[in-house]
Amino acid sequence: MKPLVGVDWGTSSLRVARVDASGHAIEQREFPRGILTVPAGGFPQVFGEACGDWMKEPGAVALICGMAGSRQGWQEAPYAPCPAGHAEIASQLAWIDRGRIAIVPGLSFDAGGAPDVMRGEETAVLGVMKLLGVSDARIVMPGTHCKWVRVRAGRIESFATYMTGEFYAMLRQHSILARTLPAQDGELYEDAFLRGVDYAMHAGNLLHAAFTARTLSLFERLPQSAAPSYLSGLLIGEELRSQDLHAGDTLVLAGADKLTQRYGLALSHLRAPFRVLGQEATWLGLHAIAQSVKELA
């Protein structure tokens, strides 16, 4: 296979890697150059600054996943419908420079009459499957918009998006709760976090439960410094409340350490089986897609 440059281009950050023949990163770089920082027409320049030297290697090809394929990105890559595996995804690459630079399509799933979408997570899911050596799994990808993904027979069958991280930011900064919260989140208070998880699990209604982040502080039953941890627990607990956590399969958490730690803490508290993987899965996923593209052989 041709030398592969992997690019994970999100809303707020840009990660690039030289990927070896087994799908692992030889060298990685990260920049605060998410798509929202790139001016119109500026994507080729930012791409060149990030990994242009790697692209000088004879035959080098770049596969780009994430929000670079959105309407606000470099070039729109239409969503591929579920179910989809690496072959279906590879067949719908959006080429910027045929045989040299391509964008991975996102995925869509019709959930009860309303579409759900992802960009970038589909590539990490493929990498998780390759890393674990399994063809069936339930994968949780914490983030601003957390994804719960069901994979069967090596293909992404369905998924659901939860705006947990974004709701936290909205409540944290723009609601009445902000009046009683400290200026900075600070360290994670595990007791307060798990208290929030427990309250969400039995309250059964986030619109009611969220207000307790204010009232507990008003009545001095929760230290102000621990209130962000409590609110975080409430929101993650609400997300977990809607899941079947004991369906007989082990959940796989894949993502940034800070968030996977919180989800893992909550799942352990609820006695739900899980395992944790890091962010290296994206490069494995891009490698799996590249293997299905004849032009990259």
Rank of each mutant, 00 (worst) to 15 (best):
P142D: 01
G278N: 12
A226P: 12
A290Y: 10
N205H: 14
V140R: 01
Q224I: 15
E280P: 07
M129P: 14
F47G: 02
Y263K: 10
G237W: 13
P39E: 08
L194Y: 05
F193C: 06
G285M: 02
R150C: 07
I139C: 09
G66L: 04
H86R: 13
D136A: 10
S108D: 01
I156H: 02
L218A: 08
P39Q: 08
F31I: 04
A153G: 01
L126K: 11
A183N: 02
P78N: 13
L231P: 07
D185V: 13
A183D: 10
V125G: 03
R271A: 15
F109K: 12
A210S: 07
P105H: 03
D198A: 09
D97L: 11
D191K: 14
A80P: 00
A247E: 14
G52N: 07
D185A: 12
S225P: 03
A160F: 04
R179M: 04
S232G: 07
Q261M: 08
M201R: 13
Q291I: 05
R271V: 11
H269E: 05
L296V: 11
E238L: 04
M201V: 12
R271N: 15
I139L: 00
A256P: 02
L63G: 02
G73N: 06
G23P: 08
A169R: 14
L253W: 10
G112Y: 15
S108Y: 03
V125C: 03
R179D: 14
V197N: 00
I139H: 02
S13T: 10
L267S: 07
Y168F: 12
Y79K: 07
L132G: 09
V125F: 03
D20W: 03
G66C: 01
H287V: 00
W54F: 04
Y263Q: 06
W74T: 06
H208R: 10
L194S: 05
P32L: 09
G69S: 04
A203P: 09
E57W: 04
G233Y: 07
D136M: 04
Q75E: 09
E121P: 05
T250C: 11
R275P: 03
V151Y: 01
M170H: 05
V149W: 02
G255E: 04
S12Y: 08
I139E: 00
R271I: 09
R18E: 11
Y79I: 13
A90N: 03
T123E: 00
S242Q: 10
S229F: 01
M1E: 12
G237V: 01
P81Q: 15
G278W: 09
S268I: 11
T250F: 00
H174N: 12
G120A: 13
I289G: 03
L277W: 05
G113C: 13
R18L: 10
D185K: 14
D8K: 00
G41C: 01
L14F: 09
L218C: 06
V140A: 15
T180A: 15
R98P: 14
S217V: 15
R18M: 11
H174K: 08
I26Q: 09
R155N: 00
A203T: 12
V38Q: 07
I139T: 03
R275N: 06
K147Y: 13
G120Q: 13
V19H: 01
I289L: 11
A50Q: 02
L231I: 10
W9N: 08
G52M: 02
S135E: 15
E57K: 07
G41P: 05
A25N: 02
E30M: 12
A183K: 15
Q184A: 13
L181C: 08
E30A: 14
K56F: 01
P81R: 13
E187F: 04
R155T: 11
